[in-house]
């Protein structure tokens, strides 16, 4: 009996057939476009006539673009701000909510509600809130306390923090739910033991909760970094990259190359650079944190 027949007898063929739809779907809608993007990054194309191979020209022009480092800096700034504000907030909320005895469902729903609002609607809504005149929503509220009016997104220095505030509001709920689920898996006897050892609330959080959540915390950290590096909707809809390129991010730059200037070569080249950077960063991150993970 040949190896092929044995493979078929042992279910190899049916496994492959079962896998086929998945392979086709991913292949056609996922891997093929990625492959095309890699090819296009070495071409000059208008998507109609035969593309011209230009070697590394697209990469050179992307790296020589004066906006390249601006967008990299802005993206890194957004990521750092989002980590400072956006990373601890869901954890604090989740820990607090897990301590609440009543209305836990209500609090979960309230925390998750912003995630349900479609991102475009949320951003446009916040743009109205950020109206820089003294009659704007936020400025009116702050005015009651004698503060402001603040320029919000109309000023280069406050535009990015304003985007981070909105993005944190929008996305924190999803992470809260993940943490809440993870918190249920923390064994309660560990808290009892800590209590016997005389630990207070902070002691329990520091010595029991956080170490138990270590694995999930490491994963959400890298996921958040990857997601924030690809920030697009907020600057695109709220500021268009302004004022004076203060919120031009890498992904917005990619979008502009492709859809404002029709330069698909530059757009795919910058996409590839971003993907490579994120892949390398993730690999290094997992290597460095391997020993900390609980799994």
């Amino acid at each position: 009996m040949s190896a092929t027949i044995r493979w078929v007898r042992h279910g190899g063929l049916s496994t492959l057939l079962l896998l086929l739809p998945l392979l086709l779907a991913f292949g056609y809608f996922g891997w093929y476009p990625i492959g095309r993007a890699v090819v296009m990054s070495f071409q000059e194309t208008n998507l109609v006539t035969e593309p011209v191979w230009v070697g590394l020209d697209n990469f050179r022009s992307v790296l020589a673009d004066p906006l390249f480092w601006t967008s990299v800096r802005n993206t890194a700034y957004f990521t750092v701000l989002a980590l400072l504000f956006g990373y601890p907030i869901p954890l604090v909320l989740a820990v607090l909510m897990s301590e609440v005895r009543r209305y836990k469902g209500l609090f979960s729903a309230l925390a998750y509600l912003p995630v349900v609002v479609p991102p475009v609607v949320a951003v446009l809504l916040w743009r109205v809130f950020y109206d820089a005149s003294s009659s704007g929503v936020f400025n009116t509220i702050l005015g009651w306390f004698g503060l402001g009016p603040f320029p919000w997104i109309q000023d280069a220095s406050s535009a990015m923090p304003s985007l981070v505030l909105q993005a944190t509001w929008s996305n924190a709920g999803a992470t809260v739910i993940i943490y809440l689920a993870a918190l249920t898996s923390v064994r309660t006897e560990l808290y009892d033991a800590a209590e016997v050892d005389g630990a207070g609330v902070w002691g329990k959080i520091w010595n029991v909760t956080l170490p138990q959540l270590r694995g999930i915390l490491l994963i959400t950290l890298i996921l958040q970094v990857i997601a924030t590096f690809q920030i697009f909707t907020e600057p695109y809809l709220m500021t268009g990259g302004g004022p004076n390129n203060a919120t031009t991010t890498v992904l917005l730059q990619i979008y502009d190359y492709a859809f404002r200037f029709g330069d698909y070569g530059a757009a795919t080249a910058l996409s590839l650079l971003l993907a490579l950077f994120l892949a390398v960063m993730s690999a290094v991150y997992f290597r460095l944190t391997r020993s900390w993970s609980t799994t």
Binding site: G11, S14, L24
Partner: peptide, 21 residues
């Protein structure tokens, strides 16, 4: 069960190819 699985997979695959085509 395996035969049903194979048949389903085949139908999916054909449908998808038709859709792509």
């Amino acid at each position: 069960r395996i035969r049903i699985g194979v048949a389903t997979a085949a139908v999916f695959a054909v449908t998808l190819m038709t859709a792509c085509g």
